[in-house]
Amino acid sequence: MEVRTIKVFTTVDNINLHTQVVDMSMTYGQQFGPTYLDGADVTKIKPHNSHEGKTFYVLPNDDTLRVEAFEYYHTTDPSFLGRYMSALNHTKKWKYPQVNGLTSIKWADNNCYLATALLTLQQIELKFNPPALQDAYYRARAGEAANFCALILAYCNKTVGELGDVRETMSYLFQHANLDSCKRVLNVVCKTCGQQQTTLKGVEAVMYMGTLSYEQFKKGVQIPCTCGKQATKYLVQQESPFVMMSAPPAQYELKHGTFTCASEYTGNYQCGHYKHITSKETLYCIDGALLTKSSEYKGPITDVFYKENSYTTTIK
């Protein structure tokens, strides 16, 4: 009895394709271990004539594949690729409408935090270190965002349907971005203890939790000093293409032309909904596939993004 075979390709990165001759009487799992086709788990399936010449994702289970996976995804987590594939199996079914010149995501599976993050990423200057993220990001900007969303979920250790947080998501993504040249110098002034300067680099240099107003941050924000008295913390120097200011959701007025974009969060910790506000020729609110415009805006804002380049204080 002759062994019926077909020729397929296996890959971990969709760049390096490895030619395989597979036995049609055995499952993919018996031949390769966990195997995925377009995100779908085909591990328990036997090869079919229609699979001839198709590319299958496999887990990096030998040295060659491990090197290829690390170079593309910059992670050695053995569960990463499987999590990416199972997320992709959902995100490829989502709709990605162009809204006001940006790629958004039609609401499904509690994905409003991903839509808000995706919209924000198209408006701030950011370059990702893992080629996987950078490639998928370019495709997302062009309207094909399924891979990018699935990668975000995998890097953030999230599953489809789980509630997510924009600030946490951005923080994970910033860790995989090139923020080497970003720098922030802060000064804390206390009447009792004097003053202390701190220099922050990388992710810490672009994120701040405690106030939404970048102007206020430049002037000074009140913080408790270690001595128990009130101290003032203010920005001395900022070198970065953008800054992200966050605070627990509270009524906040966004003035046209003073910011790049913002995240609105309605609801409580267990259950809520994100919308995205962007400042173009007027203010726009993007909620999944829905767009509304207004000249002014007041609502429960939790993150505001500002364009920056270089700032030095005039406070002496």
Rank of each mutant, 00 (worst) to 15 (best):
V3T: 14
R4T: 13
T5C: 13
F9H: 14
T10V: 13
T10A: 08
V12M: 12
I15Q: 09
L17D: 10
T19A: 14
M24C: 11
M26G: 13
T27H: 09
G39R: 03
A40S: 13
D41T: 10
K44W: 13
G53T: 10
K54H: 12
L59R: 06
P60Y: 06
N61G: 08
D62R: 07
T64L: 10
T64R: 12
V67T: 13
T75N: 11
P78Q: 11
G82S: 14
Y84M: 03
A87F: 00
N89G: 13
W94P: 03
K95T: 14
K95E: 15
P97W: 15
D109L: 03
C112M: 04
C112T: 05
A115S: 11
A115V: 13
Q122N: 03
L126S: 05
K127G: 07
P131T: 03
A132G: 09
L133H: 03
Y138H: 13
R139D: 09
N147C: 11
A150Q: 04
L151K: 00
I152V: 08
N157E: 04
V160G: 06
G161Q: 05
G161C: 07
T169Y: 01
H176F: 13
V189M: 08
C190V: 01
T198S: 12
G202W: 02
V203M: 10
E204N: 12
M207G: 01
M207I: 06
M209Y: 15
T211W: 03
V221F: 06
Q222K: 14
Q222N: 10
G228Q: 08
G228D: 03
T232M: 11
T232E: 04
M244C: 02
A247N: 10
L254Y: 09
L254D: 02
K255C: 05
G257I: 03
T258K: 07
T260P: 01
T260Y: 07
C261W: 00
T266H: 02
G267N: 15
C271I: 10
C271F: 15
G272N: 00
H273F: 02
H273G: 04
Y274L: 05
T278E: 06
Y284H: 10
D287T: 05
A289M: 05
T292R: 11
V304N: 00
V304E: 04
F305M: 03
F305W: 08
T312H: 09
T314P: 09
K316A: 15
